[in-house]
Design a protein around this nucleic acid. Structure first.
Lengths: 160, 160
DNA sequence: TATTGTTATACTCTATAACTATA
DNA sequence: TATAGTTATAGAGTATAACAATA
């Protein structure tokens, strides 16, 4: 049985408020490194070398946007783009050493800030929040059934 | 004692990914009602009539931005701005009946969509996520002043 | 003088569509 | 023809600074 309608409304509100938290975190980043770059570098470190299309999927944005962010990071020497030997249309992205250092710096700043704000949280709560947010992302990322959730065509049928 | 550094880094990543979820939810909203309007209307329903400055604080954004969003909503008849009898500089904001209907529609769309995606979640997990996100916002919210307010805000909204 | 709110300007993030170059 | 990626353009969301009106 799914949860109450009221719980979902509350969740929608809570998720919106995360936006403000993210802005707060982004404020402690270096000036030439916007939040989008940080996300990009993080994914490249976690998953290793990958193609534009792959990164686009992980970021959950349009490839045109990925292209801009990647260009920004490449101009600053944080990542390298080199041709895919198996597909001349593709470009493989890889973190440079400078990019790894940059990421280290970003990560340190962000986690220090979060640590300050969440100093009185029990570690188990932080862990739980991480787990649930990961599951949330999975629940949203996977189900790309366009018709069911598109504007104007919403219904309560949750069949799969 | 606080949590691991690695947990905070993970949290930063998870919070960023909420951005994609919010975009997905926003996509099912009516065309003339951006996400910012939805947040604004929700707060006005929950907290009732309030001033610009008050709303600004709750939204966690600059008042200039609030001013724009409020103007957008006022032009569409969702909220009314009338003078504060106690302070000629202030304006009091109130949901109109049309605004309440609009909010009802938005809320139904968003929660239906979330329900579809989270159909296989146990209700207790949804509740836990709501609680932790509420606490997160509280821990970040008013803490522009360093140590003083942190423990206060932590307890203030941990229950509902 | 200080505060409430508005407006002007600029920057970030995003999507759509048109384009290129390979496949 | 179809796909990978880029670029042009437009639209939300935000912040800073200059401003008006009131306290």
């Amino acid at each position: 049985m799914p949860a109450d309608r009221a719980q979902y409304r509350e969740l929608a509100r809570q998720l919106r408020s995360v936006h403000a938290v993210n802005r707060e975190i982004a404020r402690c980043l270096p000036h030439d490194c916007p939040a989008a770059s940080a996300g990009l570098l993080t994914l490249l470190r976690t998953h290793g070398e990958m193609r534009m299309s792959n990164l686009t999927e992980l970021l959950g944005i349009d490839m045109s946007v990925t292209s801009r962010h990647v260009a920004h990071a490449a101009e600053r020497g944080w990542i390298e783009r080199h041709p895919d030997p198996y597909d001349g249309r593709s470009r493989l992205l890889r973190l440079t050493e400078s990019g790894q250092e940059q990421l280290e710096e970003l990560s340190a700043r962000a986690s220090t800030m979060i640590e300050n704000r969440l100093a009185d949280w029990p570690p188990s709560d932080v862990a739980t929040l991480n787990t649930l947010l990961g599951r949330l992302r999975a629940s949203f990322g996977a189900a790309h059934t366009p018709e069911a959730t598109r504007s104007d065509t919403y219904q309560a049928t949750s069949d799969k």
